[in-house]
Nucleic acid binder design. Structure first.
Lengths: 194, 194, 194, 194
DNA sequence: TATGAATGAGAATTCATTCAT
DNA sequence: TATGAATGAATTCTCATTCAT
């Protein structure tokens, strides 16, 4: 309910979606330094069209992050239902895997050139809330030690995404996840001894 | 065949060192987007002088990384001697703290816009060797589980630096280090139960 | 062969008038650099509609000037009737006051980016004729010296509008008008001695 | 004494002067909308060179105006010495003639897109002071009526420049100057009766 | 050899105008 | 016919790199 929901014309909506998708892929591939012209070219539209939908480069970034973030949140919400003990781990490692392709999201989380709390406060709050839920759940289930908090989890997400981006290879990351899991487990539990 | 190390005239050498230091500080402060002119200005030399010593911006970056890397290696070597069980942890968390200020080194490790192995193969090899030593030492001392290898440690360094950069605050990181330490410890050991 | 004056549909005519009015006000407020989109927005129509009525930005300008000019001419015609001695002065200072708000008209008169004689020859001729009448009338009445001609009056209008635009304040201009009036008066007349 | 008078290198100084001169001529010819690229092209330098000397388009304008203004002031100072009764008139009509070629100066005086008092306060003060001197002198000499002040003179300059610009032809302006002179003269004086 | 001026290829953004819906 | 989306050329300004002094 942030703005007047004037429904876009069908063709304009298609273009907008097209640009968003292409921009997402292009930023992921080439980093944030790609010229808008390049994105326009790849999307098969004029530069002006990109600017009609996203009045600054910054706002295009923001739209991409908002889009990805809402997908991630949806995913997390789904995770909550299933296995209470595993939900947090599943989400954590899912987020880590995003680091492989989703440079924009990664940088947004890491606060690089982008202040999530300021740019998308609503989404940020929602995201934080869900992580808090997942964490509390896991702590009640006894799979996560009680002395870590939501901020620690956020920190770990940033770290895991950086690692995943560094290790292009998903195989290699499977060696690291158990270390993190063991570190988060309740000391002395069977989990911690795996 | 890297280059004949023709000894620089004293003033030239001083200029080179000056530029290197200023560039390091400036990149750390302002990010890699700082114009060369700005670095020249801060170093009190002309832009041409920067280019005489470092033919491209890229090569200036590389020189900075090489410089920092050699300092880090020296530090690691010192670490080796002391407490065999603690050496790796000390080094790991020291590297993490570098993430706070040393963006260039961080990105070089993470392979962002920079291929360490290709650009500075010698230094990279040396660095890897030392980490292998520290790891082996710790594993012999029983403070690190035996199923992690040198690449895993490198991966963790990248992650830790990202976390440290994210958490401007060193205090907050002290909550995360124990998690990593617990994760790396031998399951069932007293260490892991802390 | 100017154009078949095919009568517009009522709504189209309303739109045309609306755009003309809004464009006049907007140019007056913001200057000629306002985008057509802005005018369309303020008029509550699409940009395409503006272009349907005025095929170029230039032609919109021209229409505004034509519109204003016809109002000014009407005013001048009314002036002619009244006091023969005062008619020219009244018109002159009225035109000057237009300079405060009517940038388009001012620039059209001054020939800035606009050739009135070429763009609107009919209106220009009519305007000149009326000024000639007013001047002749005043000269016959003995309130204006006989050695000034219509072109001099036009020149003075351009100057007076520039001054009025410069002096946002109407009060200040009331100090200047007497100077112009004294300058135009018959030397030695009581008028000139005021 | 506004800034460190670091002497420019001979070639740089030549380029700077070149750009200034070309920009002056080009703005006079084409108006303020000319692209900087065009000025660079005409001056035979790269766009970057223009920007090295004048960091914004605005600052280039300002430099031109400052340059012209100082010439005008010098001229006015010279005028002061000669014939006290004629000095003001000579200066007034000289300023008017500037309107023919010096669009930038004209617009600066008229306050169009440029606030002289804010941009070049020193020069503005000096200019005003000299006009005040010329006016006082003329009033003492009895050639100008006592009820006009410096602001009125400034207003007339703006108007006269607009007229001169409108009348490309200097001949035509010679018909207008006497009107202004008569208007400014002391009523009843021989001067006013000419 | 050091300096800093010059170059010129972009980059982000705007806007008159055209055209599909 | 009205709409407003798309186009793309143009504009201001930046900066890595080269080169005359």
């Amino acid at each position: 309910m942030t703005e007047k929901p004037r429904p876009l014309r069908a063709d304009a909506a298609r273009n907008r979606a097209r640009v968003l998708q292409v921009a997402y892929e292009t930023f992921a591939e080439e980093g944030a330094a790609v010229p808008i012209d390049e994105i326009a070219r790849r999307a098969g539209v004029g530069a002006g069209t990109v600017y009609r939908h996203f009045p600054t480069k910054e706002s295009l970034f923001q739209a991409i992050v908002a889009d990805r973030l809402s997908q991630v949140i949806e995913r997390a919400r789904a995770q909550t239902a299933a296995d209470p003990g595993e939900g947090l781990y599943a989400f954590l490692f899912h987020m880590a895997e995003q680091g492989a392709t989703d440079l924009g999201l990664t940088e947004a989380f890491a606060g690089i050139g982008f202040d999530l709390t300021e740019a998308l406060p609503e989404a940020e709050r929602e995201f934080t809330g869900i992580m808090a839920d997942l964490l509390a759940q896991a702590q009640r289930a006894g799979t996560v030690r009680s002395d870590v908090d939501t901020d620690d989890i956020k920190t770990l997400i940033v770290g895991l995404q950086a690692m995943r981006r560094f290790r292009g290879d998903s195989e290699r990351m499977r060696r690291v996840y158990p270390v993190i899991r063991a570190g988060l487990s309740v000391p002395g539990s069977a989990e911690a001894s795996r």
